[in-house]
């Protein structure tokens, strides 16, 4: 019943009195060890982060491009490259907004020759321009886009005939972050941001893998070749940033690949019922 004889010589720590020797010795060992553990942990967890991805966002460099503006499936600029190849830039605004609103009011822009100022994003050969908002010269069209005179030859880049139906497994991302605005611009941690970007009009893109494991980038568009409707955007919203399987017919617009998706509400399984 009796407790064992108490240890009478145990050092007793009181915060406002000098540190007993036994505690000081212990702390001199334990604290450096803990800090060493934190350093190792920091390096280990830093190395454990997902790969950043090879996206580039040239935030420090404003450039100008001349080319042909097309509004479908998403606003894009076709530029004639020096070797005759067409380079196609998706056009987005600053922040998490697409350019549809900017071009919605003006007639005759689709197919017009324009000069565009902005900052370049690119990854794996896919290109994008974030329009520069700080140009006061042409208030009607917005500061960064100006019409060129009619003598400028148009870059012809109509959408190709769609190929046979394919089924792709991948992840729906927002093209702006994925191309370099945010790294990594995919995955679970980025889901909220990707959803916000696509809601704001950034073109949605399916990133899948071909048989050799190389990334395949497909802008998502309606069967008719126009960008996804609001109702279809609502259907994909709950599955952005998650593994999905989509089928449709692939086509090309300039240097971009587009997937003309079949009825999305039937494909995205239970997405609308699962949405809160």
């Amino acid at each position: 019943m009796m407790a064992e004889k108490p240890n009478r010589n145990r050092a007793f720590y009181v915060g406002y009195l000098p540190l007993p020797r036994a505690h000081a010795v212990f702390l001199l060992v334990a604290v450096p060890l803990s800090i060493a553990g934190m350093i190792v942990g920091a390096l280990g967890l830093a190395g454990d982060q997902p790969a950043w991805g090879g996206g580039v966002w040239q935030t420090d460099q404003v450039n100008e491009w001349r080319g042909t503006l097309r509004l479908e499936p998403y606003p894009m600029l076709h530029v004639a490259g020096e070797d005759g190849e067409i380079e196609t830039y998706l056009l987005v605004e600053m922040g998490k907004f697409g350019t549809r609103d900017r071009f919605a009011g003006a007639d005759g822009l689709d197919g017009a020759s324009v000069k565009i100022r902005g900052r370049r994003l690119h990854r794996d050969g896919r290109k994008m321009i974030e329009l520069d908002p700080d140009d006061p010269k042409d208030p009607e069209l917005g500061p960064a886009v100006s019409l060129l005179d009619g003598a400028t030859p148009a870059v012809r880049a109509a959408m190709s005939m769609p190929g046979p139906r394919v089924t792709l497994r991948g992840e729906i991302v927002d093209s702006k972050c994925y191309l370099g605005a945010m790294k990594p611009g995919a995955g679970r941690g980025h889901k909220a941001c990707a959803t916000l970007c696509i809601s704001g009009g950034i073109p949605p893109m399916l990133v899948s893998r071909d048989a050799d494991g190389r990334a395949v980038y497909s802008l998502l568009a309606e069967n008719t070749g126009v960008g996804l409707s609001d109702s279809d955007l609502a259907v994909i919203k709950p599955v952005i940033g998650e593994p999905v399987v989509l089928s449709g017919r692939p086509a090309r617009v300039g240097s971009w690949r587009v997937l003309l998706v079949d009825r999305l509400d039937a494909q995205v399984d239970g997405a609308s019922s699962a949405s809160p």
Partner: peptide
Amino acid sequence: LYLLCFVVGSFVFFDDRPDVMV
């Protein structure tokens, strides 16, 4: 020290430049 080591590790262990905010 932890934050510093994490930042250094993020630059050293990857080929691509990290996103500073992420």
